[in-house]
Design a protein around this nucleic acid. Sequence first.
DNA 1: ACTCGATTTGACCATTCGGTTAAACCGTCC
DNA 2: GGACGGTTTAACCGAATGGTCAAATCGAGT
Lengths: 202, 202
Amino acid sequence: MDATETRQRILEAADGLFGELGFDATTTRDIAERSGVNKALIHYHFGTKDDLLEALLERYYEQLGATMQGAFARPHKTLRAKVEDVLDTYADFLAAHSTFARIVQREVASGRHIERVVERTLPMFQLGVAWMSEALTKAPRDLDAVNLLTTVYGIVVTWFTWGEVVRRLTGKDPFSPAALEARKRHVRRVVGLLIDEVEGRK
Amino acid sequence: MDATETRQRILEAADGLFGELGFDATTTRDIAERSGVNKALIHYHFGTKDDLLEALLERYYEQLGATMQGAFARPHKTLRAKVEDVLDTYADFLAAHSTFARIVQREVASGRHIERVVERTLPMFQLGVAWMSEALTKAPRDLDAVNLLTTVYGIVVTWFTWGEVVRRLTGKDPFSPAALEARKRHVRRVVGLLIDEVEGRK
DNA sequence: ACTCGATTTGACCATTCGGTTAAACCGTCC
DNA sequence: GGACGGTTTAACCGAATGGTCAAATCGAGT
């Protein structure tokens, strides 16, 4: 087994377990067992368990950053088209990395790793606020950038963090392609109403 | 120290610590120290640490249920007024019990206690869906009850779960009376747009 | 003063945790 | 074939964890 493959397998196992059980409830022995790798290798390759989470978040935020940057850079005819593309892209990313949404939501809600998550999320939020503030020059006062961004972010992310509740509520898989497509359609619809309002109710 | 006061102090300490550190990272010794109570008494009064969380959630959901039932029962002239009152009431509850929002968000995102939280949340969601389905007879297809409820819920709750990020983003306290009032105004505004749409764009 | 049940205490226990270490292993360059 | 750096292994460690228990304490009723 290659050294880089070892690192990969450790990260993969840690990702799955952190997502299922949470960081604190996952032991290094769990990770070793699932990845089929000696426990000491986790520390050899990554340092402490905290460092392993750090490496995992690093990888995720790098991917997310590249993905979102791609959506932002794509040419769009209207503001509405751009927003819809960005939100669809973000939803697709969360759907493809369901553990990521859960890990981040857990660690940002409380706990010892808030700072780590904030550190990486903040720049993206700031970009979002800056970008929106431009588009919101003539928006009503109670649709300010911070509130609006939190609202839109919440709309997108809650489907994934509360997926298990939705599953039991509906009896259907909220992450099936059909359900995800319906959710994205719903988000586009709701955000469309916000854009209408911001642009002055065409 | 009275026995009921002991129970109270243990619950209070556990609440604070679970909210700050998370359930797994909180030790029974932490709880004993903060509450000024012997560690063995936690088990004497509540059983296991899991049972303690259960008791805490039980208390919270009882309070929440009563509070929300009150808002629902209050007389309102319009659908809009009722929805606004309900959402304001919920936001006030979360503001008054900030640890509750964090604990629930953590445990519903992943972990061993998902079922416990789902168990208690589901009835309220079902009520919400049933109530909304009635009001949504002539709504557009992509504004179905489940999606709409998730959206509105996400809008309200994200302000509290992502409070620390907002704090660093703005440099201001997102839970100050002024900020909370502004947030509630914003939520009323956004949800108002949804109601407009559902009622057929008056 | 005595009793009895509920409560409180500190000492204790088995287990598990994250992390370390010395020795073994392995490919590769000379 | 031997030396060398990077990698892997099993055994090990001290600290902490959730939980238990017998003994002590308390308070109300007699």
